[in-house]
């Protein structure tokens, strides 16, 4: 079981991952061990994933991120929330993002 997940929570990008755009390919490169399952894995994000990744800023919660995306893109709001939550859950599972707690 991964950490408890909620759309009301705020997440930030882990310092142990470097995001790079190489020739239009958006990749996440783990710096420390324990992020990738194998020692030679890196991760590639699609366009949606990249948009969401860039908005996970440690300040807005996932609901606010979804609302921001709804304003910028005329997509079905349920689809956007599903995308934001789906990706964040995956990133959380892989320790590429972490929950921001108030204390």
């Amino acid at each position: 079981m991964g950490p408890a997940f909620s759309i009301e929570k705020v997440y930030r990008r882990s310092q142990d991952v470097v995001a790079r755009d190489i020739q239009g390919e958006f990749i996440l490169i783990p710096i420390t061990s324990g992020i990738a399952e194998a020692q030679d894995e890196i991760f590639s994000l699609n366009e949606t994933g990249r948009l969401i990744w860039e908005r996970i800023d440690g300040k807005k919660n996932l609901k606010q991120i979804s609302d921001g995306l709804k304003q910028d893109y005329s997509e079905n709001s349920q689809d956007i929330e599903a995308d934001v939550c789906g990706l964040t859950e995956e990133l959380l599972k892989r320790k590429m993002v972490e929950e921001v707690t108030n204390n």
Binding site: A36, E41, F43, L45, N46, L91
Partner: peptide
């Protein structure tokens, strides 16, 4: 496409 895919370096 999947949000995230794993690539072997």
């Amino acid at each position: 496409t999947p949000y995230i895919s794993i690539e072997k370096t």
